[in-house]
Nucleic acid binder design. Structure first.
Lengths: 223, 223
DNA sequence: CTCACATTGTGAAAGTTTTCACAATTCATT
DNA sequence: AATGAATTGTGAAAACTTTCACAATGTGAG
C-alpha cells in the first residue's frame, strides 16, 4: 500500500479525463522547451478551451498554482502523469492489422512513454508471425493466450464492423478492461469493460453537415 | 429555390447530428435486409443509446413513425439522407499521405455513397503524382489550385502536429468550410470553418485511465 | 513597506443534454 | 365494434457541464 492515493470517491467525468490527457501532452512540450511556469489561460489557448475550464480541471487532481505566477510546469506534469497512468509500462494489444492497424502501430512509437502496443492480431496468415514497427504480430487464434500471458488490459479494435463484437467478447473474457473501438458498431460488453468509440465516418458526416449549413463554431472536444 | 427547406432556425447540436449519421448507417443496413419498419428501441440497441434519445433525435428532422408499428425504414432513411447531405457527391480532400492517410483512402470506398476523397496531398515527392485507391495524389504546393478547381469544401488533416495549423490556414483560404483534424493540436480558424478533432492518443489515454480505475460505463459517444 | 495588479480557486449561475413519464394513437384480436 | 398491448411524440424533471464572477493570495514596482 505504498501507492499514493487520491481522495477518490469523487468520480471524474470522461470529458475531464480527456482534457487532462491533453494538458499532459502540452506540458510535455513546455517542459521540453524549458518553460518554468504556465498560466491557465496559456494552457487554454494551447488546447482550445477556456481558462476557467483549465483551472476547474486541474482542481480535480489537486494541482496548485500560485497567484500571479501560474502553475509550475514540471510539477504539474508530474502530477498529471501520476494521476493518469499506472506505474510501469502500459501494454496495449491491437486487433486488426489492416491499413488502420498499421497506421496505429507506426504511431505507437511517438506515443506517451509508458504506452506501447506490444501485440497485434489478425486473421490473415500473411500478416502474422512477423514484426511490424517493433510489434509482434500473432494469429488471432492465439489472442487469449497472448493477452493472458502478457497480462494486457487495454486493446484497440481495428477490424471490420461485422467482426468487432466477436473480437470484443474474446478480449473481455481474456481479461481486457478497456477498448478503443474503431469499428462503426456499438460493442455490447459488461460495464466492467470501458469502451471508447472512434467513428471516423460519423465524424466526416458531421463535418460535411456543418460545412454545408452555416457553421456551428469551432468547438473543441477531440475524439 | 426548388430545394426543400426545413424550418431551420432551431439549430441542432453536434451530438444530435452525429447520432443522426449513425441512424442513417443503421437504416442503410436495415433497408438492404428488406426490413419494413423499425422501432425506436431497436435503433437504440443498434447504436448504443436509449429509445427516448432516438425518438428525440428523430423529432428534429420531423420524422414520423406510427404507434405500434414504428418508423418505415425506407422513408426514414430517405429523410435522414436528405437532411444530412447536400445533393450531389460531396468531394473531400486529404492532406497527409502517411500510414493514416492511406488507411483513410482505403476506407473512402466503403463510405456512404456520395462522399468521396477525390484529392490527396503530401509534401514528399515519392508520394505524389500517382493514384492510390482511385484517388489522385498531388504535391502540397498545388493544394490551393486543386481545391479551388474542384470546388472542394471538406478536408481531412492527417499530417504531423507541427504542420497542422499551416495546412489548416491554407485550406481555409482555399475555400474549405469543414475539417476533420487528426493532428493532436487545436486548430485556430475563423468560426466559419467547422473543425472536428479526432485525437487517437487522447482516446487511448482515456481508456487506459478508466481500464485501471473502476470503470465508468460503456457510454456511447463515438468520434 | 505598501500598493496595484495579475492570477488562482471555487461557489453559484447558466446552459446543455439526457432521461422520465405519460397522454395520444394505432394495430391485432376477439 | 370494443378491448388491450405496444409504441410514438413531447413537456417537464433530472443530470451533467461550462461559464461567471469574485474573494483570497502572492508578486513586483516604487
Amino acid at each position: 500500500m505504498s501507492a499514493p492515493s487520491y481522495p477518490e470517491a469523487i468520480l471524474i467525468s470522461e470529458r475531464t479525463i480527456g482534457r487532462l490527457a491533453q494538458y499532459r501532452r502540452i506540458l510535455t512540450e513546455l517542459v521540453r522547451d524549458n518553460l518554468e511556469t504556465v498560466h491557465s489561460h496559456q494552457l487554454a489557448l494551447r488546447c482550445g478551451g477556456s481558462a476557467a475550464q483549465v483551472r476547474r480541471d486541474l482542481m480535480v487532481i489537486g494541482a496548485e498554482g500560485s497567484p500571479n505566477k501560474g502553475y509550475k510546469c514540471a510539477k504539474l506534469l508530474a502530477s498529471l502523469a501520476e494521476f493518469l497512468t499506472q506505474p510501469g509500462t502500459q501494454k496495449v494489444a491491437l486487433v486488426g492489422i489492416g491499413n488502420l492497424g498499421r497506421a496505429l502501430l507506426s504511431y505507437s512509437h511517438k506515443q506517451q512513454p509508458g504506452l506501447l502496443i506490444v501485440a497485434a492480431f489478425d486473421i490473415a496468415p500473411d500478416k502474422t508471425n512477423k514484426v511490424i514497427d517493433g510489434c509482434r504480430c500473432f494469429h488471432i487464434d492465439t489472442l487469449e493466450s497472448v493477452i493472458k500471458e502478457q497480462n494486457i488490459k487495454v486493446a484497440i479494435i481495428a477490424v471490420p464492423g461485422e467482426a468487432a463484437q466477436l473480437v470484443a467478447d474474446r478480449l473481455a473474457i481474456a481479461g481486457v478492461r478497456g477498448i478503443v473501438n474503431f469499428a462503426p458498431a456499438p460493442l455490447h460488453l459488461p460495464p466492467s469493460v470501458f469502451v471508447e468509440n472512434i467513428d471516423v465516418t460519423m465524424s466526416l458526416e458531421k463535418v460535411v453537415y456543418f460545412a454545408a449549413k452555416g457553421t456551428q463554431s469551432e468547438r473543441n472536444k477531440s475524439a
